[in-house]
Amino acid sequence: MKTFLQILSYGLMSGALYGLIALGLSLVFGVMSYLNVAHGALIILGAYLSFWLYQLWGIDPFPSILLVFPLFFALGLLLFKGLFAALMKFSEGDKIKNSLLISFGILLILPNTIILSWTPDERAVTTFYSGAVVDLLGWRLPYTGLATVALAVAVIAALHVFLTRTYFGKSIRAVSQDFEAAGYMGINVPRTYMVSFALGVALASIPGAIVALQGFNPDLAFELTNKALIVVILAGVGSINGLLGAGLLLGLVEAMGVFFLGAAYREAVGLLLFVLFLVYRPQGLVGRKT
């Protein structure tokens, strides 16, 4: 029973991280239908930045987010202006298809550039609290895991407030629901796309910091994108609030997979859930039907 509870709690903490991982991808996909499969590579890049900030100046990963977030926002603006803006000349269908292809190209280029620059070695940030746990009669809850859950709730809540209480946030939702009509309202649609994309990239810095604490290497990029995709589909495209629940669901399902089938099938169980949702419940847990 204790082991079951233990595995369950690890699953939930992983789930919170999955929710964070999916945030940036979901935002961009929901607003402009660009499936940025390079998102995982951006998270890894964020992990490296947090890592170097710690190595060079002793900045703990959690506060490092305050530095990496704006940096990534700028990177997102650059990427959009430099690369994705060139997609505007295509028709809607081609635009969406080609955005997938381009991000695929970035997914290839970025991790390999990282390997060339910083070697493929495994890295990790080890801090004073790295191994520490809250011990409740044998039930162990790592501090990092608890912080991840808290961070996930905080970030998603903040994003929710941004999207529902600020004018710009509301305009982002308007653009995602009907971009042509949004234009007729006086909303600068191209600029909204650019800012949303940059925000999506910036959001990768948050899970990046946590991944830095867990240990990472460039090959993780693909797996992270994969997790993000699964959570986005489980939540339903366009739903930000549902991401936390979907992340937790994935974490739980994986934990159950480990418990009943063994560690080797952890990924496969999540993937199966993913395919089932894709084919039989495409609107996800809470999302709208497109």
């Binding site: 939702r173 629901q177 009907d178 909303i187």
Partner: peptide, 18 residues
């Protein structure tokens, strides 16, 4: 072409975006 998942108030607010 209303924004279907936004409230009446939010739709009106979007109209006043400029």
């Amino acid at each position: 072409r209303l924004f279907p998942e936004m409230t009446v108030l939010e739709n009106l607010e979007m109209g006043a975006f400029v």
